[in-house]
Design a protein around this nucleic acid. Structure first.
Lengths: 159, 159
DNA sequence: TCAAACATGTGTCACACTACAACAGTTGAC
DNA sequence: GTCAACTGTTGTAGTGTGACACATGTTTGA
């Protein structure tokens, strides 16, 4: 019966909450040491640049983080001042300004990813092989069922 | 061998990433419609008040969200102006100011929780009973292995 | 060639978060 | 009853996000 299935899903949703809370904790803690260096919106930009792998246009970045181009200019100013990114004129189109990761910015993103993976690994090591297998299979199925979500918001977390 | 176990855990950590990303997506989306009404720090306060169930002292709330008492006063001002919380003098100690949830504030927290549970349920319904059972068991084990994390950061998300 | 469209930057304004110092009222202890 | 400790509030100041209107320089197409 579908009604039974729905009920079962509701129970499962409740059962999954503590675990998802723990996972969120891992993410939140990986982000914590970061607040000394950058704000969350600034980190979003660093993650976008790291994902892209190459310099991005100022306007495209503004669009990606959903802010007014003029807002982005000031954000970029601050990030340039902090040595996180660099501005460069596009040689083939001189009205465009390209934003490029500086080593410090790239390192910041990597540090967050590293810490998160490490923390996750520590927790997983404390589980039995069978529990781990269950979690992996369950999470894979969850990921499939969730399908492709909009990445806008979560890319902020560098996951 | 422990080396083998560590390797296995590292693989599992990688395998779990997409699923945790999907879960984070559920959380991020449940928070999205909220930005019209409150800021994230303000929402943290609403969550704390909802969890407590009763009015809280101004200073305690300031401590809980790790801000200077004077900072908290201004935040409370804004939240009172928006009808989210209410100030009340403690009759038994007139130097204390109690902060209390207004219906609008309570409803905001409930709306977020509701949306998150609903979205989670939708995804879980798309999984087979076996997959669901695996996920539930795996997440419970993960939660146990993670132990009690500091709740400070994640309480922001109202989970 | 020259005007329209484009891309970024500036001037200006508003608002939220944050802290520190100083102040005022309240309580509790001596 | 007085004074020190406690609690919240106000004055002041700085930073970051965000937007709108406008200016400047660049490209492109008619």
């Amino acid at each position: 019966m579908t009604t039974h299935r729905v009920e079962e899903a509701a129970e499962a949703a409740a059962a999954v909450i503590p675990g998802s809370r723990a996972m969120l904790g891992v993410i939140a803690r990986s982000l914590a040491p970061l607040h000394e260096h950058v704000t969350v919106p600034q980190f979003r930009i660093l993650v976008l640049l790291a994902e892209s792998g190459s310099p991005m246009r100022s306007g495209d970045l503004a669009l990606a983080v959903s802010v007014h181009p003029s807002t982005f200019v000031r954000m970029a100013d601050r990030m340039v001042a902090r040595g996180l990114v660099r501005r460069a004129q596009n040689p083939s189109n001189r009205r465009e300004t390209l934003i490029e990761l500086e080593p410090a910015g790239r390192e910041l993103v990597r540090a967050v990813t590293r810490k998160r993976q490490r923390d996750l690994r520590v927790i997983l090591t404390r589980m039995t092989p069978m529990e781990r297998a269950q979690l992996v299979d369950g999470m894979e199925a969850f990921s499939r069922a969730a399908g492709s979500l909009e990445d806008e918001d979560l890319s902020a977390f560098g996951l």
